[in-house]
Structures are given as structure tokens and as C-alpha cells.
């Protein structure tokens, strides 16, 4: 439900960054999105479309790179979360180590990172 405000903060940052490079246009935004965030890809795309209508990002492409959630345990287990029986359709952060049953730590999947921009700049 908060995709719009998150995206609007991202766009602000992108506009700021593109000014630093004297960019005349942003062509592509590459966003890494962790699967443990509560951010929906569809909602992010919709917000992006609305929020890029009248600025330097107009007509640009949003590429979302999904990042797998991962946990790590003191017993040595490290791995992705595989869908379980009761949540077959998406990954949820189950912190019970599948190997030893103890408490594991989340080591990946909480990102919402604007990695790169492809921008048009004057060729000087």
C-alpha cells in the first residue's frame, strides 16, 4: 500500500542524481527488489508510470530485478527460502532453520535499491 510514497522518494532521488550528470533524459532505471519487502511489483510499476509523466523520466523504462530472500544459520545452513506447504505461492521469511530448527538470520531479500540509471548526457 505504500508503493506510491516509496516510488515518489525514489523518483526524487533519481531526478537529483540525473541533474548531477547534466542529463537531458533518463532512459532506464534498474531497481533491485527483495522478495521479503512488502512492495508489490505491479503497484510499483503503476506508481512509476504516474510519477514519470511530466519529468526527465518521461517515457523511460523501469527494469525490476528480483532479489531472492536468503537466510543463514549458525549451524552452517545458508540458502534461499523454498515455498512451503502452507504458503505455496510466495516466499515468506520463515526464520526456523530447515536444517537444525534453530533461529536463522535474514541475509538477503530486504532491498529496494535503485542500482543504475541509463541517462542521456551532452557529449562534450
Amino acid at each position: 500500500m505504500h508503493e506510491f510514497s516509496v516510488m515518489s522518494q525514489m523518483i526524487e532521488g533519481i531526478i537529483e542524481e540525473s541533474k548531477k550528470w547534466n542529463a537531458t533524459k533518463v532512459e532506464e532505471v534498474i531497481l533491485e527488489l527483495g522478495e521479503f519487502t512488502m512492495l508489490g511489483e505491479e503497484q510499483l510499476r503503476f506508481a512509476y508510470e504516474v510519477l514519470t509523466k511530466d519529468n526527465i523520466l518521461k517515457g523511460s523504462k523501469l527494469t525490476i530485478v528480483p532479489v531472492k530472500g536468503a537466510i543463514e544459520c549458525d549451524c552452517g545452513f545458508k540458502g534461499d527460502m523454498s515455498p512451503s506447504e502452507d504458503t505455496p505461492h510466495r516466499s515468506v521469511p520463515i526464520l526456523e532453520c530447515p536444517k537444525c530448527g534453530n533461529l536463522a538470520r535474514i541475509v538477503g531479500g530486504r532491498e529496494c535499491t535503485v542500482k543504475n540509471l541509463r541517462v542521456v548526457v551532452p557529449d562534450v
Binding site: I14, E17, R110, V114, K115, L117, R118, V119, V120, V121
Partner: peptide
Amino acid sequence: MHKVVTVEMEKDILA
């Protein structure tokens, strides 16, 4: 006149 460049941003809003 213009060129397209890739800019590294590494900005994580949640972070």
C-alpha cells in the same frame, strides 16, 4: 551531441 551513459546509483530507499 549526446550520449547515453550508465550511472551507478546504489540508493536503497528502505535502507
